[in-house]
Nucleic acid binder design. Structure first.
Lengths: 339, 339
DNA sequence: TTATTTTGCAAAATCGTTTTTGCAATTATT
DNA sequence: AATAATTGCAAAAACGATTTTGCAAAATAA
């Protein structure tokens, strides 16, 4: 792992650096390098373990083989799993991931886009915050490959991949209706992200479809950056204030976790006193007693599709009618004992 | 976010690129640029939103402001939390993380080191696999800043930061002894990583200290890359084969999770039929019924110290007697109802 | 045999910065 | 007043690769 440059190889082989470059980039034909010389150069470079300086290559070619990944928080199990799935897929293209967490801060997010752009990443995978519109528009104007994941902007024509959020919540509600639950509370975050809005919309739609008036007090919106203990407290209070509720939907995993804790504090029995379903499947939900019914996102499929769309752009594949609607994948309803 | 170079700025200001560079890098004094001109240049560059091309800067300066992070698997909650903590710390230095997972594969790990090195990362944070010794030695010879996390190599003098693994298991055993448990099984992985070996060693030491012969059949070593379901099966079998056991220690989080599932399958009651403690604290362990007693790692402290050690090297701080022994932090025994 | 094309590679330009060197014009010194 | 030192900036070199251009020598064509 010494610092050995193309000039060193050239000197060893008694040729010019350009010759070495052509050979190592398999351009012997175009550059008309004789096979004998090419073999000699390849041998030498292999023997001394030459690896080109990536920053130099990047400067010259404009390519870094790095994808910028911007998520909300890598320590959230959903994003951690997604990041891993993306890493696995991207590895196949010999790309790497430079990752950053937005912490749900729009300013922070915009900065990260700037930073990654000037670091010449070859593409972006972004789970955008609610206020990233301007930043994303700027980014699209640069023609950098970009795919949104987990969330999208309906008004922007950016390839996006996510779970079918409405379907997920509809499945929850249908299950509740089928089991005879009629008073379902909905616990979500206060952010204006489309995925969260769609989940809420599906909740409202289901009520309407079943001719039940939507009661705003059955919807709890929790500020996203509230400390965990505060979230638990809010949910606890919400449950106590609405003893009429027979069931709850938690619109995301950490709310589900906080919800379990809150329900424990209230000394309520699941599902006898209250039935629950949470978005996102976790070990916790599977192993909890009783097992928690969940809406599981097809993370691997989302990752695969996102990478396909990204590399379609990177390789300038005939932009197959870049569809305006996001690519959605149906979630899985995993029924356990909590309903 | 246009591609605007230092030459463009120079042209706009009617000066040479070198002048712009000096000003923007706050070297006006050394370069003897007049304040008036400096202000003019700063104004222009701010107005057009100039940001230097990072690859060019990196090529010229040899610095990338990127740290390579190599962990086993970013989707493991422990590593996800650690990565987040590291990211938060590193951000303060205006550095970024290029991350990679080894999947516990030595070849893969060695490749990643190579790759990151040639990408000119300014330093490494590595949770090494068992077979990375050669790779690490090569890396130290390049004098690249390097800090090991979570694991270390006793025979290599590389700054390392991790939890006090022996203390963790000793705390488990002491709790068991105090509560009258005398037949404790130990469930661990088959990898030769020092952290795992130390955990096992502490288990054995505790038995010896209490004049109890170590029974090899009370120790279960599970191949690390076995699918989850297989792990559950192995643990299940182990428990059935050893009905005499009154308690179990799981040496890492995913074994603890699999363990809970196995115990459920056996229809054993915790702690009546069997008491358990797991390494690493998770939401699952806290919220499980009964709550699972755990050894919680001080992840934030580990991250903070690792970054301190890393930047001591990067900034060439007087290598304060680079101690041979790793920096260890005591874990916390979180007692719940499972014992 | 001479003109033309092809071969095989070297030399030079380039990517966008930072850093070193150079060089007038001004100021200070004797 | 002549010389030396300082000021203020421009010009050039360098980082390590890729890509374009150039140019003899060999091969082919006329």
């Amino acid at each position: 792992m010494k610092k050995i440059s193309i000039k060193d190889i050239a000197k060893m082989a008694g040729v010019a650096p350009s010759t070495v470059s052509s050979v190592l980039n398999n351009k012997n034909k175009e550059a008309r390098i004789s096979d004998a010389l090419a073999d000699k150069i390849k041998l030498i470079s292999k023997k001394v373990g030459y690896r080109p300086n990536s920053t130099a290559v990047s400067l010259r070619t404009g390519k870094t083989n790095i994808i910028g990944l911007i998520v909300e928080d890598i320590s959230n199990p959903f994003f951690a799993l997604l990041a891993k799935a993306l890493e696995d897929e991207i590895k196949k293209h010999d790309y790497r991931i430079l990752y950053c967490s937005t912490e749900n801060d729009d300013i922070n997010a915009a900065d990260l886009v700037q930073m990654l752009f000037h670091r010449q990443v070859d593409g972006f995978l972004i789970a955008p915050t609610a206020g990233m519109k301007k930043s994303l528009i700027e980014l699209t104007e640069t023609n950098k490959p970009l795919v949104l994941i987990d969330r999208y902007y309906p008004e922007l024509k950016i390839p996006s991949v996510l779970v079918d959020n409405k379907l997920g919540i509809t499945m929850c509600m249908d299950l509740f209706w089928a089991k005879g639950y009629t008073k379902t509370g909905f616990i979500t975050t206060n952010v204006e992200q489309v995925n969260m809005l769609e989940r809420e919309e599906a909740y409202r739609d289901s009520l309407k479809k079943n001719k039940v008036a939507v009661s705003e007090k059955f919807i709890l919106k929790i500020p996203i950056n509230l400390p965990y203990a505060e979230k638990v407290k809010k949910i606890n209070l919400f449950i106590k204030k609405n003893p009429v509720l027979d069931s709850l939907i938690f619109s995301t995993n950490y709310l589900g976790i906080a919800g379990l804790e809150a329900i424990k504090l209230c000394r309520l029995q699941i599902p006898q006193d209250i039935a629950i379903i949470s978005f996102d499947d976790l070990d916790l939900f599977r192993l909890y007693t009783p097992g928690i019914t969940t809406i599981s996102q097809p993370i691997d499929e989302i990752a695969k599709q996102a990478i396909i769309l990204l590399f379609n752009q990177i390789n300038k594949n005939p932009q197959q009618v870049s569809q305006r609607k996001p690519y959605t994948f149906p979630p899985h309803l995993i029924t356990r004992k909590s309903v």
